[in-house]
C-alpha cells in the first residue's frame, strides 16, 4: 500500500493531500480536480477493477461535501477509499461512470440525495425521488419532517424514466 501512495505522489505531486491509514483501511484524501485522473491511474495501472461504492458526507460547519469512492482490486484484495472535498456552493466533480459502469447508478443516487453534480455523467437524473422533487434530503439542513404530505404528482405520461 505504501508504494501505491508513493506512486501517486510521484505522478500527481500536489493532488494527494493526506493519507489516513487505520487498521484494514487506507483513505487517500485527494484534490477534487485530480480525483478522476488518480482513479483512472489506479484502475488502469494498479488493477483496481471493482468500484464498490460511491458515497458522500455533508459537513455544513466546514462548508464542504465529501465524495467518497471505495475501490478494490479483486485479485490482490487491496481496498482503498478515495475522498475528495467539494465546496458546498458548487459541489461538482467529474464522473467516473466511464471507468466503471457501476458508477452510473451510484452517482445518480449521490446526485439525487446529496446534490453533487457529476460532470459528463451519461444520464444524471434523480433515481430514488420523483423528478420534480425539490432539494436534496441528505444535506444536513434538509429537515427530517415536513409540515404536509408531498403532493405534486405528475400525470403518468410525463413521468417516463
Amino acid at each position: 500500500m505504501a508504494d501505491l501512495t508513493n506512486d501517486i505522489r510521484d505522478r500527481f505531486p500536489d493532488a494527494l493531500k493526506e493519507v489516513v491509514v487505520t487498521p484494514g483501511e487506507t483513505t487517500l484524501v485527494v484534490e477534487a480536480a485530480q480525483a478522476k485522473a488518480i482513479l483512472r491511474f489506479m484502475k488502469a495501472e494498479r488493477g483496481f477493477n471493482y468500484l464498490v461504492d460511491v458515497s458522500c458526507a455533508h459537513w455544513p460547519d466546514e462548508g464542504r461535501i465529501d465524495v467518497v469512492y471505495q475501490i478494490r482490486n479483486l485479485s490482490t484484495r487491496e481496498q482503498v477509499r478515495v475522498r475528495a472535498a467539494l465546496p458546498v456552493e458548487d459541489p461538482s466533480i467529474e464522473t467516473v461512470a466511464d471507468l466503471w459502469r457501476t458508477a452510473n447508478w451510484l452517482e445518480r443516487e449521490v446526485y439525487d440525495l446529496m446534490g453533487i453534480m457529476f460532470m459528463g455523467h451519461p444520464d444524471l437524473r434523480r433515481i430514488m425521488l420523483p423528478e420534480d422533487f425539490e432539494g436534496h434530503p441528505l444535506r444536513k439542513e434538509y429537515p427530517m419532517e415536513g409540515d404536509d404530505e408531498w403532493r405534486n404528482y405528475l400525470p403518468p405520461e410525463e413521468s417516463q424514466p
Binding site: 464498490v52 461504492d53 467518497v68 471505495q70
Partner: peptide, 29 residues
C-alpha cells in the same frame, strides 16, 4: 470513517459510517 462489508444473502452489503463526536452517526450509508 469506516467501511465495513459483509457477504449478505444478495451480495456485498456495505456500511459506510462516519462519526460525529456524539452518539449519532454523522453519515450512515
Amino acid at each position: 470513517e469506516i467501511y465495513f462489508s459483509i457477504e449478505a444473502t444478495k451480495g456485498e452489503l456495505g456500511f459506510y459510517l462516519v462519526g460525529s463526536g456524539t452518539n449519532v452517526a454523522h453519515r450512515c450509508h
